[in-house]
Structure formats: C-alpha cells, structure tokens
C-alpha cells in the first residue's frame, strides 16, 4: 500500500491485453491507480487527457513501436518517468530508449515485485524533479 495520500498514477502501454489486465489488477491492489493502452495512438490520447506519475511501455508493439511512443511522450511530457519493457535481443532498442530519456528498463518475463519497485522508484524520482 502507498504511504502518501494521493496514489501513484500509472499508464501501462502494451498490446497484450491479457498482460495489461493482470498487471493492472495486481498494481491496483498495491494502491496504484492504473490505466492501460493497447496502442501508441491510444496511449497518446490518454496522456493528453490525464497526468501520470510513471508509465510502462512495451518495446514491441504493432503499429507505432515502443521507441516511437517514448519519443512522443518525451515531447508531450518531458518530466514523465518512462520504464521500458524489453524482450531478448532488443539491446539496440534498449540503448536507443535510454539515450532518448527512458528512466529505466526491465526484461521480459518480468518479476512483478521488481516491476513494482522500479515503478515506485522512478515515480518518486520524477516527483522530485517536478
């Protein structure tokens, strides 16, 4: 559970609905407020109407891929901490993401506790910066 009065608002961008749904319900139980988006377009729409403390973006998405979404997010909200989810063999894309300003990354399959820890961590850092 969160210590602060206002819960952390998290956006998860991944086209694997089953995955975003289960992450969402588990994160919610940990006291986070979670939205999900299945595509770059949907994610951008949500970011325009909502403020988030952190976001998780899957690197491999159909249509606009994770790195492109990262670039757009950095333009729309430069202070928003972004966590990239990567698969194996995406070293180049990971390096590109970090160069483009991603806060951190995690390899799939992710360990839920590690993911929660990273989200809390980057959200706090983002909050400090703001």
């Amino acid at each position: 559970m969160q210590d602060g009065a206002t819960p952390i608002r998290l956006l998860i961008v991944d086209d694997e609905r089953g995955f975003t749904e289960v992450l969402s319900k588990r994160m919610t139980r940990r006291g986070l407020r979670v939205d999900t988006a299945a595509s770059g377009a949907e994610a951008v729409r949500m970011l325009r109407t909502q403020d988030y403390d952190a976001t998780i973006i899957d690197l491999k998405l159909e249509g606009m891929d994770g790195v492109e979404i990262l670039k757009v997010f950095k333009l729309l909200d430069p202070g928003l901490p972004i966590l990239m989810l990567t698969g194996h063999g995406s070293e180049t894309a990971v390096k590109a993401s970090m160069r483009l300003g991603a806060a951190d990354y995690l390899s799939k399959p992710v360990d839920f506790e590690a993911l929660v820890a990273k989200v809390l961590n980057v959200a706090r850092q983002g909050g400090d910066k703001a």
């Binding site: 089953g18 995955f19 289960v22 992450l23 588990r26 139980r29 194996h88 063999g89 799939k108 399959p109």
Partner: peptide, 23 residues
Amino acid sequence: AGVAHEINNPVAIMIQEAEWLMD
C-alpha cells in the same frame, strides 16, 4: 528465438494470474 518470443507473453500472463490468486 521467434518461438521463445511468442511463448514469453502467454507464460508471463499465466505467472501473473497465478501470483494474483496467491495475492
């Protein structure tokens, strides 16, 4: 490598759902 990639997603979901039940 392609197959491992394909299997990763459903496996991740199964693990998360099982852990959800454990939660």
